[in-house]
């Protein structure tokens, strides 16, 4: 993943359940929320997320 702020590569260092309520979601049924990838930028320290597939 590229940093949305500076375009540098980001490091995927965590997955975290975000409490969203979508009864039809498979991740909701498995984890009780949406699993989100947390990425940090090596250059500027920015944090970004994307859905875990």
């Amino acid at each position: 993943m590229k940093c949305p702020r500076c375009g540098s590569p980001m490091n995927h260092h965590a997955d975290k359940v975000f409490q969203v309520h979508d009864a039809d979601s498979s991740t909701q049924k498995t984890f009780g929320g949406a699993v989100v990838e947390i990425h940090s930028c090596l250059a500027c320290g920015a944090v970004a997320t994307r859905s875990s597939s």
């Binding site: 490091n11 260092h13 930028c41």
Partner: peptide
């Protein structure tokens, strides 16, 4: 933790 966030991948 900064080093880990920026340098160590989860998988």
């Amino acid at each position: 933790l900064r080093y880990g966030r920026e340098q160590i991948a989860l998988n």
